[in-house]
Design a protein around this nucleic acid. Sequence first.
DNA 1: GCCTTGACTGTTATGATATAACAACAGATA
DNA 2: TATCTGTTGTTATATCATAACAGTCAAGGC
Lengths: 161, 161
Amino acid sequence: MTDHAHAFCCPDHSGAAPAEAILAQAEARARARGARLTPVRRRTLEILLEAHGALGAYDVLEKLAAEGYGTQPPVAYRALNFLVEHGLAHRIRRLNAFTACTHPGEDHRAAFLICAQCNSVTEATAPELSRALHAAARTAGFTIECSTIEALGRCSACTPA
Amino acid sequence: MTDHAHAFCCPDHSGAAPAEAILAQAEARARARGARLTPVRRRTLEILLEAHGALGAYDVLEKLAAEGYGTQPPVAYRALNFLVEHGLAHRIRRLNAFTACTHPGEDHRAAFLICAQCNSVTEATAPELSRALHAAARTAGFTIECSTIEALGRCSACTPA
DNA sequence: GCCTTGACTGTTATGATATAACAACAGATA
DNA sequence: TATCTGTTGTTATATCATAACAGTCAAGGC
């Protein structure tokens, strides 16, 4: 799943928001919400941050198990679900996978851009997009609780010039 | 999954676009694309059209099997994938389920509104939404091949007045 | 007519993803 | 200290999806 050669296709994980800062933010955010970022949970978030692209629950589990945490699926799913619930990670449904949130703290509704070639997942904040979706829902008399926006295609690095 | 009492929450399947018309359109569309809407495929589409909300592949399989078609998962998945590929049905990723396209023929990019209470799935055409997504992608240098937009919430019938 | 061809259907078997239910434990608190 | 709540880990199982292969059938070339 994450077997690409790691060239220039993963903008977020060598650049802008370094893992340590994100972890610190995550810690603060969890605290603020009365939730505990326990060792497994913290380590799970680190694993996601270290990854290129999104990771499946079983990929995460494998790493956790190798480090002495539990070896069974619920261990990974619980940690991942915790992170998702608290806005520290996102579930990418098209991939049955998870990715760290690259800007936790902000109350955002993101769209995910999934590169079919290098497997990178880019989180695009798009207020207008969210607005358009809510508008469309309102027209139908529908009240949105949460939404998923995912696009599959080619990232800038994988697009032939 | 589809065990609600069928009150007023499924706008599309007692109203606007009757199943027969959709089937006829589907037939025409398949023909036009050089594809064959064989008995299993047609019946699968009918099953989706008859359903309240979206159906899982195994739900569809159960019905097909009961009617003398194959009894194994690939039978359902193949038919469903055919329908999706030809724009006659949609995959709802959040539900691991499928739903008939309520307006085949139009080259649309739809958003799906999933009611958490009655399980209905409404297909909302939203040109602006699509436009906003493409715009957001372009900003990131990303080229979209296909996209998924799904929202979970309450439909009009399930929203307390 | 009949034979080749390619698409379709069905099967067995297996893989991949996800959760239910329970036991042990750790920290907070009355 | 006794108890409660939340967390972790386990076993077992449920759910979703596909690979690979064999038989079938309709359409077109000869």
